[in-house]
Design a protein around this nucleic acid. Sequence first.
DNA 1: CCGAGATTAGACCGATCGGTCTAGTCGGAG
DNA 2: CTCCGACTAGACCGATCGGTCTAATCTCGG
Lengths: 195, 195
Amino acid sequence: METTTHTTKQRLLDAGLELLLEHGYHDLGVQTLLAATGTPKGSFYHHFESKEDFALQVVDQYMVGVHGALDACLSNPDRAPLQRMRDFFEATAESYRGEGYLGCLLGGLGQELSGVNDVFAQKIEGCISYIAGRMAVCLAEAQDAGDIAPDADPVGLSNLLVDCWEGAALRSRLRRNEQPLEAMLDFYFGSAVTR
Amino acid sequence: METTTHTTKQRLLDAGLELLLEHGYHDLGVQTLLAATGTPKGSFYHHFESKEDFALQVVDQYMVGVHGALDACLSNPDRAPLQRMRDFFEATAESYRGEGYLGCLLGGLGQELSGVNDVFAQKIEGCISYIAGRMAVCLAEAQDAGDIAPDADPVGLSNLLVDCWEGAALRSRLRRNEQPLEAMLDFYFGSAVTR
DNA sequence: CCGAGATTAGACCGATCGGTCTAGTCGGAG
DNA sequence: CTCCGACTAGACCGATCGGTCTAATCTCGG
């Protein structure tokens, strides 16, 4: 019926968001996922070709949320471009808090699988570079408004931002707190890009 | 005889540095390691209690190299403090190049295992914070020399540096090139900290 | 030259992995 | 009511996992 996709499939994807973030790919067994959701194995393999296919669709599911947050934050007319960007990361940090500071799913799967699986490497790289692209648009607006240096490179600065964010998210996962995230944002928006 | 530790054990640790970086923890089977080094299983479990024990000792082995590079770079009297710090990361980037840009072992294992294994989480956090501590010393020197703002926080800036580096290393792994690493260093040393 | 501990050697183990298969259940179109 | 495709249900499969065990083989002090 294609409403919010199928409920069983959706339930699996939602559980996948949580479980893949916590366990990573290889440490999450299909059985664990099935037990956590009360799903029989036949259903899983009806909806997904394989565990890899499942994880890739979980990433798509993750990106649905990212798209939503990007649209909500970056188009806010009441905020300056740089403020809108920071709003997005503050909202992301808030959702990390709700998960117990386990870092970023993209970073986690990217780190674990990109050495060995090109499909995943390219998928995650595409997701991250998409986010950076959205940031670059905002940085260009900030440049037009005179908020950052006229000779700055919005694309370069946007990739830097998401890269450093991923690093801060990893440290946040190691420490289970928000401090690295906030420190990174303060540095980037407070003392660095602005000038 | 405890010369450079035992050769079989050392051979396993050296192979572990490579293989764990490429495969990560769960994707690297003990059998693969044994086949790659021509070691029988009995030897492996004679020298190591378990696969986890092995990986933890590989991290120790990794840190031996890090200590060496830190000592070599950070005590160079011919370079200013900030230059010495950048020297270290440039040397690290050079070694990443030799591995085909697979990122950082600490970041890789930390990301994969810290959600599920506290021993690893604390081990990796300790390693990263040790590196940051060494950087903080150098930043304090830079502050004394007037190279960074007198009100800057060396400890905070040093953690920021290693966090952002780990993020750049992840992106470098996804893209298999050095660009994110250099961009991050240019930003940090070029336009940000200095002032 | 002997004996003992360190190390090598690899067959073997139960558990778990991802994935397949067949049988049953369900809901709605005709 | 019938039928058919979508979905559920879980037993089952071979492969591989980390780890154990026993026996053979080195190494070297006495």
